[in-house]
Amino acid sequence: MAIPQLSTEQLEAARSAATEARRARAELKEQVKNGTISFTEALNKAVDDDTLSRIKVIDLLRALPRVGVTRATEIMENLQIAPNRRIRGLGRHQVDRLTELFT
């Protein structure tokens, strides 16, 4: 299948949409980092939003204060969540275990 040729306007619209999505995801992680919202609130917010649900779980964990690469990896392994899993790909039980861990 050939890649469709997009017009200049379509390319610019796609770029601006991608930039806006990245900003929204970065803003959510920054709110978690600053303590403006809790991890559980961020998780619930991301589950309902198509753009935010594309954040990797490990990146959201690493946004928490005092959680680095090692601790985030340990949490993921203990909860049996794949390292490349995004929030939209979490199962009901995984969401429940994450919520239970951080409440």
Rank of each mutant, 00 (worst) to 15 (best):
M1D: 10
A2L: 14
A2M: 12
A2P: 15
P4H: 09
P4D: 09
P4G: 11
Q5P: 08
S7R: 13
T8H: 13
E9K: 14
L11F: 08
E12F: 07
A13M: 14
A14V: 07
R15G: 07
R15T: 07
R15Q: 12
S16M: 12
A17R: 14
A17G: 08
A18Q: 15
A18G: 12
T19Y: 07
E20D: 15
E20N: 14
E20P: 03
A21W: 01
A21L: 02
R22T: 10
R23T: 08
A24V: 00
A24K: 12
E27K: 06
L28P: 00
K29A: 10
K29L: 15
V32G: 02
N34H: 14
I37E: 11
I37G: 10
I37R: 05
S38H: 06
S38L: 08
F39Y: 01
T40F: 03
A42W: 00
A42V: 03
A42F: 02
L43M: 09
L43C: 08
N44M: 00
N44P: 09
K45I: 02
K45E: 11
V47T: 15
D48P: 00
D49Q: 06
D50I: 05
R54E: 14
R54S: 08
R54Y: 01
I55G: 03
I55S: 01
K56C: 09
K56R: 15
K56E: 15
K56I: 05
V57A: 04
I58F: 03
I58G: 04
D59N: 14
D59W: 03
D59F: 02
L60W: 10
L60Y: 10
L61E: 02
L61Y: 04
L61D: 02
A63M: 05
L64D: 05
P65C: 01
G68Y: 05
T70C: 01
T70W: 12
T70K: 14
T70M: 11
A72W: 02
T73N: 10
T73C: 03
T73M: 08
E74P: 01
E74N: 12
M76V: 04
E77F: 11
L79Q: 09
L79E: 13
Q80T: 12
Q80Y: 09
I81G: 04
I81D: 00
A82W: 04
P83C: 05
N84D: 13
N84Q: 11
N84A: 13
N84L: 10
N84S: 13
R85N: 05
R85W: 08
R86D: 08
I87F: 01
R88V: 12
R88H: 13
G91N: 10
G91S: 13
R92S: 14
R92N: 13
Q94S: 14
Q94C: 06
D96F: 09
R97K: 13
L98H: 00
E100T: 05
E100R: 10
L101T: 10
F102Q: 06
